[in-house]
Structures are given as structure tokens and as C-alpha cells.
Amino acid sequence: MPFLGQDWRSPGQNWVKTAEGWKKTTADNKNHRYCEEVEEKDDCYNKENLLLSLNYDVAAKKRKKDLMNNNSKVPYFHREKWIYVHKGSTKERHGYCTLGEAFNRLDFCSAIKDTRRFNYVVRLVELIAKSKLPSLSGVAQTNYMNILEGVVQKVLDDQQNVRPIKELLQTLYVSLCALVQDMGKSVLVGNINVWVQRMENILQWHQQLDSIQINRPAAKGMGLTDLPASLQLNIMERLSDGRDLVSLGQVCPDLGTLAEDRLLWKRLCHYHFTDRQIRKRLMVSEKGHLEWKKMYFKLSRCYPHREQYSDTLHFCTHCHILFWKDTNHPCTANNPESCTVSLSPQDFINLFNF
């Protein structure tokens, strides 16, 4: 039991508990000296181990920091490709899950390389660009821009989905212009110069997409124009965007005639819009026929299109975990499939509106 002397800076006296009570140890006590020597050796050994462990931690942190600095375009993702979405503080978890945290934990870099998930990720990135950029943390913003760069690079390599990505870049640039003007209100995380550099990158990506030249493959076998008209019309029915249908009709006069088919535009209207919406926007020609093509573009300006994706994010209502369909998550339900709900991109955004 240490005992302080008159000088508070002194180490005090050493006491030992015995059967008769506490006794002050003497300097000539051999056992006490031996114990002190053993304790000193143990202290030195523990100090050496502590220093080694501290040096190891510092070295590991330095290697991780150097890796992030040298290869900053590689976003950091957790090993688990799912995230627990909680909307309040509990004894086990403090705080709530944010959009930026979910954006970092889910493997979007691999998702953009998957044809089934590409359109889903693009739509999600577009929704974040419209209203959720201020909600992202600094790391989430970096990952967001890296994913966007990966999307642009995939379009440049595959020469597909050029128009949707150009529209996405235009939406993001307009949103950033509005947010940068309010920088004094601290609506964006990070330095203003960083955001200006990102806006310049967006313009550069847009120019690259404008200058893209689609390489036509060498003619081998039959082409679209060589097919019968019934098959050509059947292929056109698979297009879900009227603008693609108009572009296809500009290839040659024969395809242009098929692209004006009224039944084709009627199916397109009923695919994207409800009967009530169609009745509100009826357009009749002089001959008394419904102008389905004009109605489609008029409805497109008034109502959102129907969204359909090959693969989406899923949410487990039992364990409150957000995950991709083919990713296993630690569900404790007896029938996990009955607790799984498919989420649209807008549903994913609404999940974090606390």
C-alpha cells in the first residue's frame, strides 16, 4: 500500500500485507530486492512488448495511409457486402446508419461491371446527384466520383448507354453549380477547390462522350435490315425508350416506316404509364385516331417512366440488413426469402430519410 510522504513528489513508502497486518519494508530485505528485480524485469519486458506493438500499429497505419495516397482512385470497401440499417441509437449501436456509410459498404464498383446492375447503379447515382450530395461524407464523395469515373470508362469501352450517362453528367454538373454557389452555407463537405476540380472532370468526361465514335463491326452474316419486317417490328417492341425508337427509325426509310407504327407506340404508352394518366393526356388526330407517339412524349414530360431492373438491392425486414440479391447476409429468420423486399433506387434513397 503506497503511502505519500511530506513531499508530494516523493515516491512514498512501500508496505507489505502480512498475517499480522501491514508492515513497512526495509531496504536490506533480500526478498523485497529480489521481488523488485523481478518486477523491474517484467516491467522492462512489458514495456518492450508495448513499444513493439505500438511500432507495429504505427507502421500498419502508415502503410494504409501510403496506400490510400498512392492509389487514391481505389475506394475502400468493407469485406461484407451488406449493411445493417438502423434508424436510432440502441445499446449495441450508437447513432444511425447514414447514406454515405451505406454507399461505402455496398460494392458499387463491382456492380457497375455487371450488366444486370449497371442501370440500377446509374439511376441511384443520378438520384444522389439531384438531392443527396450534401449528405455524403468526404470518403463517400471520393467513392462516388470514382464510381462515376468507372461508369464513364465502361461506356467508353463498350460504346453503349452513351445518352443516359451524358444526361447523368449534365444533371450532376447542374446540381454542383447550384451547390457551389451556396458554399458559404457549408452545404458541401470539402474544399471548394476540390469541387471545382471535380466539376472540370465532369466536363472533360462529357466531352469524351461527345467525341466517341462507335465502331461498326465488319459485316458478317445478316443485319437488322436484312430481317423480315415482322422480326424487325418484334425487335422494336423490346425497346423501352421512345427516343431509341426514333433513333432507330432514322437509320433507313424502311425502319422509319416501322417506327411510326401506332400499335408500337400504344404498347410503349401502356408500359410506362397508367390508364388514368393516359386518359388525362389524350390527343386525337383529325381523322379521329389517337396520336400515341405524341401522347408518349407528352406523358414523358409529365410523369416518370416505369423502372425495371434485372438485379436490385434487397432489404430484409426481419434483420434490417441491406444487401445484393446474390450476397449472403446473417439472417436469423426461419424463412429469409419471405422477409426479403426488393428496393428501387428511390426506395433506397427513402430508406435514409430520417
Rank of each mutant, 00 (worst) to 15 (best):
F3C: 09
L4E: 11
D7T: 00
G12A: 04
E20S: 14
K23Y: 15
K24P: 14
E39C: 03
N46R: 14
N46E: 13
E48G: 09
L51V: 15
K62F: 10
R63I: 13
D66M: 11
K87M: 04
L106G: 00
I112F: 08
Y120M: 07
E126P: 05
L127K: 09
K132M: 05
V139H: 10
Y144K: 00
E149G: 04
Q159D: 09
Q159T: 11
E167W: 07
T171V: 12
Y173V: 01
L176Q: 02
S186Q: 15
V187G: 07
V187I: 15
L188G: 08
W195R: 02
W195Y: 02
V196N: 07
R198Y: 07
Q204Y: 09
Q208N: 13
A218T: 13
L233A: 01
L233S: 02
R238L: 09
G249V: 03
V251E: 08
D254N: 12
R279A: 05
L282H: 08
S285G: 13
L290M: 07
E291W: 05
L299T: 00
C302Q: 10
R306L: 11
D311L: 12
T317R: 14
K325T: 08
P336H: 06
S338Y: 09
V341C: 03
P345T: 01
D347Y: 03
F348P: 00
